[in-house]
Design a protein around this nucleic acid. Structure first.
Lengths: 132, 132
DNA sequence: CCGAATCCGTGACGATACTG
DNA sequence: CAGTATCGTCACGGATTCGG
């Protein structure tokens, strides 16, 4: 028998591990954990490092990650304000799996895009108007 | 310096690998790939195996995964209809990273839930009504 | 000047009903 | 059985404003 899904509790809709999967299986979480691995960073630098994320979404994501014990938040009473984030011990255990996912995305995106084009090609022949 | 994020193109908002990360860093994709690894499955069995997913979302997700070359679709002209899905070669390379993610969720959800409770505890002291 | 809160449009999600 | 269609809901995400 070739590894026919060995007792994955997570597949049950009632399993509480679902909630943690939903949190970590998310592109922003992946990129934040990748950026945060190595050294702690302040909010603005994180925002710059993770290209394209808005301040609101970054703040929300970070608060959820903090709530789940994956990152820790360090606020300084200064002016201008300064808040730093870093991975907790639990969060550091996430680095390897999420890094693997990020690497897969970088290594295989050309295959994905190629497949996508081929799929669209033969599904939308009406997309190319034949001599209008 | 300890591994300070070695040239991650994916962090650039313009990088096309972002699109593939968004597809795979998603709880439904993770569970579908996990279930599909090992043997091909027909639509209904997949729906049963992945607890809690609606038919519409499963169909949509499968179509996107097919479009991106991660699963292949095999439809039989029968009555009642029968459609089977299986991982492509590209999809099989996704199994290990996503399995690692699923395993992390199962192994660490108790820590996550504990952290969550502790966080909520000290943030919503009004949540516990004191002798109503 | 930095980080967070507010407002609001868009789109994903899920349930239900219907078709081949 | 395997989808598609339609619709209501709501979380996501962007732009803007506030606060110190």
């Amino acid at each position: 028998m070739t590894a026919s899904t060995p007792t994955w509790d997570i597949l049950q809709s009632t399993c509480p591990s679902r909630t943690s999967l939903a949190r970590i299986a998310n592109k922003w979480t992946a990129m934040i954990v990748i950026v945060l691995s190595g050294q702690r960073k302040r909010f603005g630098d994180l925002r710059t490092a993770v290209g394209g994320i808005s301040g609101k979404v970054l703040a929300e994501t970070l608060r959820e990650l903090e709530r789940d014990g994956i990152v820790s938040r360090h606020a300084y009473d200064e002016m201008p304000p300064r808040v730093e984030y870093e991975l907790t011990e639990l969060g550091r255990t996430l680095h390897e799996p999420l890094q693997a996912l990020g690497r897969w995305a970088e290594d295989n995106f050309s295959s994905v895009l190629a497949a996508r084009e081929e799929y669209d090609e033969q599904r939308i022949p009406s997309g190319r108007p034949l001599r209008p």
